[in-house]
Simulated scan of single mutants.
Amino acid sequence: MKSTKKLGIWMDHSFAHIMEFTSRHFEIETIESEFITQKHSTKTTTKCSDIDNTQKKKLSVYYKKIGDYIQNYHRVILFGPTNAKIELFDFLSEDERFLKIKFEIKDTDKMTQSQQHSFVKEYFS
């Protein structure tokens, strides 16, 4: 029987830790985002809509990088403290390459890499 390729991704809007579930040693790949949380500024020369569009483009690039990594897997657990995991799922749902992948989404708190590893191991075991 063919082995199902499984992947765990802990993410927020800043970075994603990608962990393949295998019987061997876990390796964590990190993908960083260029998304910046906007703080209130005294500058009024830039329109809010321009800032929003720039940030949306940065998030799209980030989600595409993660999607490129995901496309060769069969089961994926997306977890983390923000709604970035839901945004990623929505982004990928528009692409037919991801229709056969089984996704699950779980809310979690911030976690150390060791806690992330344990979460993925327990989830797929």
Rank of each mutant, 00 (worst) to 15 (best):
I86D: 06
E20C: 09
K57A: 15
K39N: 07
E94Q: 10
K2T: 12
K110E: 15
L99D: 08
A16I: 04
M1D: 13
S23K: 11
K6G: 12
T4F: 03
I9Y: 00
Q38G: 06
H13G: 04
H13M: 07
D107K: 09
H74K: 15
K106N: 08
I105T: 09
I77P: 00
K121L: 14
V76P: 01
L99K: 10
D50F: 04
R24H: 14
K100I: 10
R97L: 14
A16C: 11
E96Q: 14
A84C: 12
Y62K: 01
M19Y: 11
K57I: 02
Y123V: 06
Q116L: 05
S118Q: 06
L92D: 00
H13P: 05
W10K: 01
M11H: 00
T30P: 04
H74A: 15
F91K: 01
K110M: 10
V76L: 05
E87W: 02
G8W: 00
T112P: 02
K47M: 09
K106R: 07
K110L: 12
H25F: 13
F35S: 00
T46E: 13
E122D: 12
I77Y: 00
Q71I: 15
Y123N: 04
N53I: 02
Q55P: 09
E122F: 08
S14H: 09
V76Y: 03
E122N: 14
F26C: 13
F119Y: 08
I51V: 11
R97C: 11
R75E: 05
L7H: 01
S60F: 12
Q71C: 12
Q113C: 11
T108Y: 07
I31A: 03
F15H: 07
Y69L: 13
K39L: 06
T44D: 05
E96H: 14
S33Q: 04
E122C: 06
S93I: 03
I101F: 08
S125A: 11
K57E: 15
D107F: 04
F103W: 07
Q113D: 15
D107A: 14
I70N: 00
Q115W: 06
M111N: 01
Y69D: 10
